[in-house]
Design a protein around this nucleic acid. Structure first.
Lengths: 328, 328
DNA sequence: GTGAAAGCGCTAACAC
DNA sequence: GTGTTAGCGCTTTCAC
């Protein structure tokens, strides 16, 4: 059964398609009477707008693409959920693109989004080694980068937590709670962790502790890496884990090695993933303000769509320390 | 700057738009020579297909909507990610709709998806009280239900874990590991938990334990609810928590009340969320096969799109018991 | 193997 | 306040 088109509605309401269109879009220039008539017919028929036709005509799709490395990661999931909610409230749909940190997939998605003529793209990431480069052919689709630095800051808006400040706060907290030789624990390094590390180093400097990679930086590949590190650096009495998942492994290993947390060794993480609050002991960590990040991103996106140029802007969102049980 | 259209490509390649279209869609009826010529021009110009125009013409959008109560829930996130991946490999985009368990929002999304003329809708849920009813006006958009029973099974395909069997297995395991009076812990009840409870009851029956709501069912609103329950039912030596989050609260309360797990009381959960493997003690639980569920769903979706009618089918996916530390 | 042209459903410029 | 109509970019039928 054929779907109703605007033509059918026009005919059934004894008006022209233009009038129906005006009523649908509330564009004025119709009487209350015709409006009611048309609306009634629409209701009766169950007429549904055809967005393809509309987009073809208007060049607006009311659709935003969102590139995310892994939706299962709770930080990303949180962000996506909040962004999606905000976009929905502005009548936008969001197309989710799980890139799996795979560049080929990312390219394929970008291609797809270009074909779809989305109104904008939000790029989320903290997991790539490389910056984000988006070479749209002619028509520039505006894009916003969250947590992944773009190759060229002039083309876009960059939004991120203040990872540097977060790292600084975390490390200072370790000092304030009595640690004297905190070390940092990393796995893979990307743009955001780099800043967290920089914050860590700054805190050391402020406390007159010299940073030596062999003494203050642990690459946590497995339990024995930790064991070796602690044997060589018995003075270490605090760890800033560059993210919560690392902190979780760390805690597990430390417990297996019979260290007492936080008595002997304090730990602070980053992200505040759900598991952090469920561990024994519960993890002290740095929480990112996903709500604010999402708001800022959507805001910038709307501005970009409306040609309110913000290109080149960077927004750094403050983090918050959540004190729990792995610090004294 | 205007974007290139198929007309421009036609002109630049000295062929007709029809030919360009044939080349793009690889529909045959063109020579190798023209093909190369056209492809070259496309490459040079960076021409991008306009999917709105194409969809308008073909009535196919290559877009699937996916309704999910809460993408932050790790089970849903997992499912969505896997479904999205499969759809992407088939050249479909997925529009994510986070309904927040809000019926009004759900309706609004459905409306949006109808306007967008998506090719299909996948409805995920285990969190609604009511079944899913989708009254599309005329053109039936096919839809698949995962974990939420449709109001009318004849209109759709229903896919879900075998919650009943999972509940049965969980409870049997408790018995096998030495519990004699297992109880079930619930919070809110929906279609899936109902089946899990039914499985629990069946296991009791098989072990000649009579089910009495006051003795075998705990509504875990807070710690004192647990305390009261255990005072009244001191014989209880095992809990089947109807999902992992409930299990987590339960463990925490039990520890605060100084019960020993699993020595005095065994616990088994359901879902295998990430936190389950990180608790102390680690949670024994029932894992759902998200991969299989996703595959089945996408498969059915493709069949529905291709008019390979499966309506009325139900697929029950087996679960798997993950033995960890909260059982003996 | 190729082209001309109709038409998908809509919006908006223009005329009245 | 309302109608006529062109045209957005594409696919597809039909003719050659």
């Amino acid at each position: 059964m054929k779907q109703y088109s605007i033509k059918d509605i026009a005919k059934l309401s004894n008006v022209s398609t233009a009038t129906v269109s005006r009523v649908i879009n509330n564009n004025g220039r119709f009487s209350e009477e015709t409006k009611n008539k048309v609306l009634e017919v629409i209701k009766q028929t169950g007429y549904k707008i055809n967005d393809s036709a509309r987009s073809l005509r208007t060049n607006i799709t009311y659709t935003i693409g969102i590139l995310v490395p892994d939706i299962k990661n709770s930080f990303f999931a949180d962000l996506v959920q909040k962004i999606e909610e905000l976009l929905f409230s502005k009548n936008y749909s969001t197309i989710i693109c799980n890139t799996d940190k795979n560049e080929k997939k990312e390219q394929a998605y970008l291609h797809m989004l270009e074909n779809k003529k989305v109104d904008g793209i939000i790029v989320i990431s903290g997991s790539y080694q490389h910056g984000f480069k988006f070479q749209s052919s002619l028509k520039e689709i505006p894009y916003i980068c969250i947590d992944r630095e773009p190759e060229n800051f002039h083309n876009t808006v960059f939004i991120s937590s203040n990872h540097y400040q977060g790292g600084l706060d975390a490390t200072n907290y370790l000092f304030n709670r009595g640690s004297q030789f905190p070390a940092i624990v990393v796995k893979k390094v990307n743009t955001s962790t780099k800043s967290r590390i920089a914050g860590f180093k700054e805190a050391l400097k402020n406390h007159q502790v010299k940073f030596l990679k062999s003494h203050q930086e642990l690459k946590l590949t497995n339990k024995s890496a930790l064991k070796t590190f602690l044997t060589r650096n018995p003075q270490v009495d605090g760890f800033f884990a560059v993210d919560d998942n690392i902190a979780i492994s760390l805690i597990q290993y430390l417990q297996e090695l019979n260290y007492q947390i936080p008595k002997q060794i304090q730990i602070i993480g980053f992200d505040d993933i759900p598991a952090a609050n469920v561990l024994t002991p519960k993890l002290t960590t740095i929480q990112q303000n996903t709500k604010k990040i999402a708001q800022t991103a959507v805001n910038s996106m709307m501005n970009a769509i409306n040609k309110q140029n913000e290109k080149g802007s960077q927004f750094l969102i403050p983090t918050k320390l959540i004190n729990r049980e792995t610090t004294r």
